[in-house]
Design a protein around this nucleic acid. Sequence first.
DNA 1: AAGTCTTTAGGTATTTATACCTAATTTCCG
DNA 2: CGGAAATTAGGTATAAATACCTAAAGACTT
Lengths: 209, 209
Amino acid sequence: MEIIGIIIADDHLIFRKGLRIVLNEIPFVKVIAEASDGNELLSILRKNTADIVLMDINMPGMNGIEATQKLKDKYPDTEVIALTMHEEIGYFNKMIEAGAKGFLLKKTTKEQLESAIKAVFYGETFFSEEFVLSTKPKYVAQKNTNIEISEREKDVLKLIAKGYSNQEIADKLFLSKRTVDGHKARLFEKTGAKNAPNLIMFALKNGLI
Amino acid sequence: MEIIGIIIADDHLIFRKGLRIVLNEIPFVKVIAEASDGNELLSILRKNTADIVLMDINMPGMNGIEATQKLKDKYPDTEVIALTMHEEIGYFNKMIEAGAKGFLLKKTTKEQLESAIKAVFYGETFFSEEFVLSTKPKYVAQKNTNIEISEREKDVLKLIAKGYSNQEIADKLFLSKRTVDGHKARLFEKTGAKNAPNLIMFALKNGLI
DNA sequence: AAGTCTTTAGGTATTTATACCTAATTTCCG
DNA sequence: CGGAAATTAGGTATAAATACCTAAAGACTT
């Protein structure tokens, strides 16, 4: 059997180490590298080839969804298996759209990991049972509430959360106050929030900040 | 330096393995055993003595809070450091009451882990920064900046979060708008928030709503 | 090359929020 | 009972936010 080369992308040091140990126990698997966020992953991929990336979703800097999009764009032969917490199940939809071929919960077993890696390597998909069972209704419900917040809008959002006025935000980002007004108006429109406090509620509930 | 004996209690296989690897890199630490839930932990303690238990909160069977209570009851010299996900921050008080002496997020660093183990072993307490920032500081390091929010203020706070204007809140609570203005001003004063969005941030971080 | 999206920004008007005052009831605790 | 805190609310001002407009430059896609 061929050796399957794997890269781990996760911001948890402890999780990375543990995953590496478990993967080392699988004979046909070789761990090539570890990345602590999306940017590091892409930088590793410029020098190394991997068959599969085991990808966390919630990472600082570039998150798993964005990293998966960019990865599939540049290296379509490298497959992605998402490794998520139960709480991150809401991102299922986005990860699938980004190109992930497998989904496992972080409290997976060695056996399940082995099956998922084999399946995805040979062109199939693999979803852990817990995932399929607990996502189906949410998958449908999530689709129409799929909100895309641009980078600049996120910048503004974070500064609103810190308590800055539109003028102060404009000064910090070297923009006109009117531009900030505009970004904010678009945020209201996209999220359906009525005003700034409501927007913050929404953003925190949906993991936007 | 003495060798500090540690038991890991967590239901995640991968997390246990990773934690063991990281702990093995700390020279004065020895991992005695791993338990996958509270019952297994207590059964291990009947045959072994440990200085510190690194305890997950959310485990099947007996959870971390109950396990900590029973452990401190039978083995008062064994200290507990909680290792939690950010989402489990709400159990902070219960774990403290149960007798935990330290709190770390699961995405902790080796350095923080080392500091926490040393501190707790020598009779002190250790809380990771994120915990201190996002929980009520009444238990943490004698900082008595305890914020008391009255019932009426909480009512107003919740309606702000839902996106209502001061006038709308007044109508809903059968008050004058000026009264709502007043409650809000007091909330700003008490929390140190600059404005409404900032207040929502604060409230959510501190479990006020 | 055409079209879309993002980011930028201005005009104008209105609504809302916030600051800094004061002060009357009510409620609760020692 | 007495005093502190909570709840209520008004006056006056200013600052800020939000609602509608429009529009141009740059990035990105097909």
